[in-house]
Design a protein around this nucleic acid. Sequence first.
DNA 1: AAGACGGGGGA
DNA 2: TCCCCAGTCTT
Length: 379
Amino acid sequence: MFRPSPYEALQVLPPEERELSGKERLLLASGPLLSWYRREKRDLPWRENRDPYRIWISEIMLQQTRVEAVKPYFFRFFEHFPRISDLAAAPEEELLKCWEGLGYYSRARNIKKAAEILTEKYNGIFPESYGEILALPGIGSYTAGAIASIAFELPVPAVDGNVLRVLSRVTGSFDDILKQSTKKKMEALVSEVIQPGSAGDFNQALIETGAMICIPGGAPLCSQCPFFTVCAARSQGLTEKLPVKTPKKKRKIEEKTVLLLEYQDKIAIRKRREDGLLASLYEFVNVPGQLSAEEAGALLDQEVWPEPLPEAKHIFSHVEWHMGGYFVSLKEMPESLPGEESGPALFLTWEEIRKEYPVPNAFAVYKKYLDQRYGGEEE
DNA sequence: AAGACGGGGGA
DNA sequence: TCCCCAGTCTT
């Protein structure tokens, strides 16, 4: 009588004759991965303890931002806002000033909104359920997973760009990692293998592998990788081909003319709109287009002699500003100022602006000019 | 699904 | 130049 082998009955090949599934690869590597992480992990400020407040702030700051860029901001943040209630009570202006230069300023505004919810609805205590964490402003699936697993040991995935890269290589996946469907698949995969008790370390180990071993841009350091023995991309020579990412589009270019308007040793700045690029931050008066000195002077409705300033270029992710500018000494306080969209101008000393008002680094060339003209940081 | 949203470091 | 970074929110 015909008897199928166990493997035939299961409709799978015996282990030595088939490819491992992604889940099997992760399961096989999880022990070595945890050991490797606990032995080799970087000593980072937010790994000092598992205080959810610190974990939260670190994860927000680390969104699309390199570790080295975050460190100084992380320390300074807790000097200003030691407790969540300090954050909730702080003026948005102070928070923005603390965030100046870090980018993605909606993160700061969302942090404040979340702090208000935490203070009012949760009595200042971080909720311990994934759903409640996910519902807070500025917290998406990655950050919710990171906080839930690192601070509270909930066995939920925290799939970021690092983890996407690692898992697509380890599992040999050709799915485009920029698609949200791919992220969902990878989250499902992690959910299948993550264990309570080591969830925080497991997620951080995946991230650490992506940051230190399975690095973006260059060749991965496979010889040191905790996934060495199970990685599909390594064993099949696919590390150059994975992960798959679709190409991105070109940036738009915007021409601007910046006007450093001086009246009695004070400089005009104004608050930007509450929505859009660099929302609610401060800027020097500026107008669209590349204006000549004559055109710039004509905008001011009084006799002036604009002095040309250096040109500057600032590159955002999706747009480039090409800027020229003029320094203009005003003889009288103008009724109104050019540039339609923004709020009324404030005339303040450069010292006050430099200390109190968040002016984004897109204006760095002109900030530096004012530092030299009025004496800023000594050099 | 695609775009908006910063800034900086490295190839 | 271009790519990428411990992503999220809006359209």
